[in-house]
């Protein structure tokens, strides 16, 4: 039982990171229709923004986190201008290849500026743990789950209670109509990219202390975020959360109860099964046509 609790908490902590990465991916996808293959590198940049402010510049916690997220916001804006705007008229595939190309550049840029040695990003609740029914739960893992919950609540408020959020949803549904309604579409699109980058930054800052930071960490996270998105439902925010937690749990529980060698087949097998049986995922997608 203690082990089971342990596995559930660890699975939820990993799942929270996948969920945040998946949310960033979904926000961009529903607002702009872009399948962002650089999503994993966004998270990697988030972690290294933390490395730059916390480890290199040695800023105190609140400032370091703030500065890292500010860097990510600027990066999101830069990405909007230099990658999204030039590519937006391209086909799905052109955009996929374009974001892959950018992710190669991002990864190499990180290698050039931070080197190949991994980093250990500190955490404000370093090394403290609580005991729960015999399971030892690191405070950081609990914090990750809590922060994710807060972010999700904040997003819900943003999309349902603010004009910016409602505008973003309008743009996601019909760009032309939104434009005719007098919405500043470009500004809202830019904001989606910034929001996605900031969320990736939060994910990056939280996983740094759990997993160490290295410049090659992005792609595996992106793969899991894709699986999470499909399982939860393409374009759905609740879906991204449920999918992320599901993938995290299936990884840990699958390794424990099925086979540690083949555990990743479980996530991807379930993803393919969902695509075949229920392509709209758990929560479904309202906007796009599907097979």
């Amino acid at each position: 039982m203690a082990d089971f609790v342990q596995l559930i908490i660890n699975g939820l902590a990993i799942g929270s990171v996948y969920a945040l990465a998946a949310i960033g991916f979904v926000i961009v996808y529903s607002a702009t229709g872009v399948v962002n293959f650089a999503a994993g590198q966004f998270v990697m940049f988030g972690t290294f923004a933390g490395v730059a402010t916390l480890v290199n510049a040695q800023l105190p916690w609140p400032f370091a986190y703030g500065a890292a997220l500010l860097i990510m916001a600027l990066f999101g804006a830069l990405f909007f201008v230099s990658v999204y705007l030039p590519l937006r008229r391209g086909s799905i595939v052109t955009i996929i290849i374009g974001t892959v190309a950018v992710s190669i550049t991002m990864q190499n840029a990180a290698l050039l500026s931070f080197g190949s040695w991994p980093f250990r990003l500190p955490s404000p609740v370093e090394d403290s743990a609580v005991s729960l029914g015999g399971a030892i739960i690191s405070l950081h893992a609990l914090a990750v789950v809590a922060v994710t919950a807060v972010m999700v609540a904040g997003l819900w408020l943003l999309f349902n209670r603010t004009s910016v959020g409602v505008g973003m949803r309008a743009v996601a549904q019909d760009v032309q109509a939104a434009r005719l309604m007098g919405l500043k579409v470009n500004r809202l699109l830019a904001f989606s990219w910034i929001l996605a980058a900031v969320l990736a930054g939060v994910a990056g800052l939280m996983l740094g202390p759990m997993w160490f930071a290295d410049v090659n960490m992005g792609d595996p996270i992106a793969l899991k975020a894709f699986a999470a998105t499909i399982i939860g439902g393409f374009g759905s925010l609740p879906g991204a959360i449920v999918g992320g937690l599901f993938v995290g749990l299936s990884e840990v529980l699958g390794a424990s109860y099925v086979s540690s060698a083949y555990k990743d087949l479980i996530s991807f097998g379930i993803m393919i099964a969902f695509l075949l049986v229920r392509p709209q995922g758990v929560f479904g997608e309202k906007i796009q046509d599907r097979g």
């Binding site: 082990d3 596995l7 990993i14 997993w211 840990v252 390794a255 424990s256 540690s260 555990k263």
Partner: peptide, 20 residues
């Protein structure tokens, strides 16, 4: 004997299973 992938970040399942 337990395995993990090159990109894995959580080994609690494997470690606990060996302990058990």
């Amino acid at each position: 004997m337990e395995a993990y992938g090159q990109n894995d970040k959580d080994f609690s399942a494997q470690l606990l299973s060996l302990r058990n």
